[in-house]
Design a binder for these strands. Structure first.
Lengths: 194, 194
DNA sequence: AACATTTCATAATGGTTGTTACGTAATGAC
DNA sequence: GTCATTACGTAACAACCATTATGAAATGTT
């Protein structure tokens, strides 16, 4: 019962996600979100909570709707293919939309004022979760002999994600998909073989 | 003539640099700068101009006082040593100060509101300048036979800096110097040889 | 048709942002 | 010692920030 919503919550969240993706947490004002969603301020608050909550919801959606290529990547048979797919997927996503180049998980915010610390911690945790998935996949590869016994799965996972983060920075700076792909190729050329 | 300054301009700039390094352009308020420098607002304006100008001056100082390891790196004889020194220098600088982890050139701002676009463009140009220096060094290496003829100096330079940027992101997230060093080692583990 | 409930849009809240007038204080030149 | 010049600290500026009080409008239930 009660008066029904006149806007679609998922649509509003998607529009919100796009703004945070482009401008980051601190660079996004509630006025921006009102303009992007077409939803008035109090309606956004009642649907999502405050700016912190809205950002967390957007990050969650980003992971499930855009960052899912990581899960497909880890399902490959060879660890080298996994590494390559993560980087190629990052390049593709980071250059897919001209108006929001780069990665939400990076653009969202690295440094900022104390008021935005919560959003940055959420991003750090989000990236760490992805790293854990990748590390476990490489541990499995080493057990299976797909990686040499002296390879360090934790270092390899952190390395691949470091390259992905660097690619995200460069994508936001306007690097072409071709150049970023060449960087990804160079990155996996260091891949160890059993 | 006129009343002399009661504060040291270089000291104030260094304090300003430290705040921007930690909080980025958007995360830093003029009140933060007043507190960090101990200089009243109008004195900062008369000495440096507005926030944009102050940020540009801080970036300039960062390049000459902290980013100079790149110039030392490119003076090495072998391209592999150049690449390694750039990454090791980045790791050292990005973990040198606990209160301002990461790189000014990254923390300063990747995404943000339209009002801070000038600062982000300045950072993009600053990073591009560093990339050009590295690319020219690798072009020289290829001419000298220190890199194979089918190596692409532009890609190698962009690759090394992508890793450096990724390391900066991870340093800001709290990664240890040891872990970042291992990542850097992995990055140069299969440097092309002639 | 009356009620409880939920959302709506308008408009205001107190606080902070970057930026400056303003009048006073300190200097070198004459 | 007067003058032009520069810097000082206080205090203000309009604009924007995230957040919310308020009352009307729209629903399902009775």
């Amino acid at each position: 019962m009660g008066r029904p919503r006149t806007f679609d919550v998922e649509d509003a969240l998607e529009a919100t996600l796009a703004v945070f993706w482009r401008k980051g947490f601190e660079g996004t004002s509630y006025s921006d979100l009102v303009a992007a969603t077409g939803v008035e301020r109090p309606a956004l608050y009642s649907a999502f909570g405050n700016k912190d909550m809205l950002f967390l919801r957007a990050l969650e959606r980003y992971g499930s709707h855009y960052g899912n290529y990581v899960w497909e990547a880890v399902s490959h048979d060879r660890s080298r293919d996994v590494a390559w797919q993560v980087l190629e997927g990052a390049v593709e996503l980071n250059t897919r939309y001209a108006d929001r180049a780069g990665c939400f998980g990076i653009n969202g915010g690295l440094a900022g004022s104390d008021e935005s610390e919560a959003s940055r911690q959420a991003l750090i945790k989000w990236r760490a979760d992805g790293e854990a998935v990748l590390r476990e996949r490489f541990e499995k590869a080493r057990r299976e002999g797909d990686l040499p016994s002296d390879a360090d799965p934790a270092v390899l996972a952190a390395y691949i994600l470091a390259v992905a983060h660097g690619i995200a920075v460069q994508a936001k700076a306007g690097f072409s998909r071709e150049k970023l792909t060449a960087i990804a190729r160079q990155a996996v050329s260091t891949w160890p073989s059993a």
